[in-house]
Structure formats: C-alpha cells, structure tokens
C-alpha cells in the first residue's frame, strides 16, 4: 500500500464512540454520506467546520472506546479521513476501521511528537509515521499481512467478495 500523507487533526485520550458518532443518529443505518455529516457533532462541533477530507486523526490512548457502533468508523471514513494514528485503540473500533477500509496505526509516543495541523506520512507496510517538517519517524505496530490484505482490498466486504469468488476460501486468515 502506498504511504498516506495528510494534515493532522488531533484529539486527546479516551475519545469514545458516542463522542465520534452521537447515539441520536443511530437510526441512520445505510446512508454513509449522511453519517459523515455528524462526526463529533455534539461534543467537538468544530471538527465539522475545520477538518478536511484527507486529514489524518492523531489521538491519545483508547481511541474509539465504548459502544460497538460501526457508524463511528463509517462516518470518519466517508468524511474522508485518511487514517487514524493513536497511542492505543479500543478493540471494536480498531476492527471496525479495518473492516471498513479505514487505516489505523498504533504508534506509542505519537502524541508527544505530532501537533495539531502538522503534516505526517503513514506507512502501513513499514509500520511507521513520519513527521514531514522535522523528519522524525515514530515506529508503529505493523498490521499482520492478512489484515493489511483486508485494508488493501478496501475493507472486509470487498475482501470477502474477492476471496469467495476465488472459491470457498474464507479470506479472514
């Protein structure tokens, strides 16, 4: 996968999925573009004004904790967020993001070296995050190959479509 370059939109620790995607919009189940209009709407309304497609979210510990609502990953992906780099992720959000084709990277220490508005490059295959202004590189966990495969195909659905059409193979490991 090509490295991804983008502007940083920064958040703190324990950003939960109610904050990312408010419960009052859960009745939106199919319209992804509509979901994208409500990212962070109630608690961080500035996001919808200031963030741009192509931005990369950098966050602290436990990003995406709380409810399993997939809309939290969907709204970011369809808003155009290019990836999320965090000190750590809550596990359901992490899996949802991969399944929807939204790149996620665990990069311990990232919040200390990267500021809001900086530009970074994330390299999923190497497992690294590079700060373009200072040139510093932060190592991140590298995703297992079959997980990278899901991202490469653009998410689990496309991945399953491909692998099932190759004949019976489950494509999840």
């Amino acid at each position: 996968m090509e490295p991804i370059k983008g502007r940083v939109y920064k958040f703190g620790d324990d950003i939960n999925t109610d904050v990312i995607y408010p419960g009052k919009y859960l009745s939106i189940t199919t319209d992804r573009e509509e979901m994208a209009k409500h990212c962070f709407e109630t608690v961080y309304p500035a996001f919808l004004k200031d963030a741009r497609p192509g931005d990369i979210i950098v966050a602290g510990r436990n990003f995406g904790c709380g409810s399993s609502r997939e809309q939290a990953a969907t709204c970011l992906r369809y808003f155009g967020i290019a990836g999320v780099v965090a000190e750590s992720f809550a596990r359901i959000f992490y899996r949802n993001a991969i399944n929807l084709g939204l790149p996620v990277l665990v990069a311990p220490g990232i919040t200390r070296v990267v500021q809001h508005g900086d530009t970074i490059v994330i390299d999923l295959e190497k497992g690294s995050v590079t700060h373009t202004r200072t040139g510093t590189t932060t190592e991140s966990s590298r995703l297992p190959d079959f997980v990278l495969g899901i991202l490469q195909d653009g998410g689990l659905i496309a991945h399953l479509r491909r692998s099932l059409s190759r004949g019976g193979e489950q494509g999840v490991e």
Partner: peptide
C-alpha cells in the same frame, strides 16, 4: 465479545472469525 456490523456480515457469510 462485541464486533462491528461489517464483521458480522462476514460471520453470516462464513461462520468464522479471526
């Protein structure tokens, strides 16, 4: 354990999960 909706679609299709 909890999983997301797309992942569940994979389970409905294959009966397995990693």
């Amino acid at each position: 354990t909890g999983i997301g909706a797309t992942e569940m679609a994979g389970v409905w299709a294959t009966g397995e999960l990693w």
